[in-house]
Amino acid sequence: MKTKIEAKNIDVFYGDFQALRNINMQFEENAVTALIGPSGCGKSTYLRLFNRMNDYIDSFNMNGEIVIDGKNIYEKNVLVDELRKGIGMVFQKPNPFPKSIFENVSYGLKIQGIKDKDFLNRRVRKALEQSALWDEVKNDLDKSALALSGGQQQRLCIARTLAVEPKILLMDEPTSALDPIATAKVEELIHQLKEKYTIIIVTHNMQQASRISDFTAFFYMGDLIEYDKTDTIFTKPKNERTQNYITGRFG
């Protein structure tokens, strides 16, 4: 196992409010790490640090380093758009652009200036195959993405991030807006994707964390309480608060 991402001494503030306190963590390559904890514990803020999506929030402020492949991504000379091209993000609610399926999946490539039709076709197909959507939409690539069901839309959004072949996937409660069947499909997909990608997923769903992740980190009120192999967290947690949370006694 190899460390892909490392968080060092992370503090995050929104104005006067401290959202995260002194977080230190290492993420394994080609593994799924789940971030769990009650609402407002800072886990989504934390996830958004890895592709610098908090940058546009006016009151946002942070200390510490996020090191990816040996490089601190918060150094001054880092190009944020370049960084994000290597890190895919999937959001809580499916958020396809109000455009065709093809245009959605090819968006990331087009903004990189790629115009070669054949290349785009191949990549779009590959991404849709990876996200297990190809068979359902291969005849409707020109149709609006908004016509798809919620579960299909979310897999489309995953395909959209896969098309640019990132190394890391960040998922912010990707199944919270989906029904159980669509959720199962997305979970299955995450399971397959981890062979190629380093995946960090925020989830409210304990069963989901135990089903799909290799490592689990429990956050509470801006602190990292416990971080270990998923098996260990769910069978013999060291901290009482973790125990209480995963057994549903609070949160």
Partner: peptide, 8 residues
């Protein structure tokens, strides 16, 4: 590169 152009 395209990215540089886009940034500019």
């Amino acid at each position: 590169t395209n990215s540089t152009k886009n940034r500019i």
